[in-house]
Amino acid sequence: MSNAQTRQTLVIWYWLMALVIVSVGASVVLPKAEALMLIFTVAVIKALLVARNYMHLKHEKAIIYAIALVPLAFVIIFLIGMFPDFVYHATKP
């Protein structure tokens, strides 16, 4: 592992730490709706940082992307399909 790779690994880690603080800060400072938007955007960014850099996805071939993205697409379809049923038919906690 070269010095540059070590430095990049640490830089990604700093970013992840900083983004956690951003999420927590947003939950305290911002109104609920804006905070949730920012918090989940930050969560996606953190996941992408880990997947691309630590899981080396940015260097992987298309087959690996396909293996990872197909089930993810199914989950998103599941979310979109389930969404109206529950959100427009409120249930008890």
């Binding site: 990872a68 089930p71 993810l72 199914f74 989950v75 249930t91």
Partner: peptide
Amino acid sequence: LASEIPTFGAILVAYIVMRLGSTG
């Protein structure tokens, strides 16, 4: 890991939609 994505994805999606449709 691809098989794990629907496992966690299903429970996370269920949580999100149930929470959005409920109070408390």
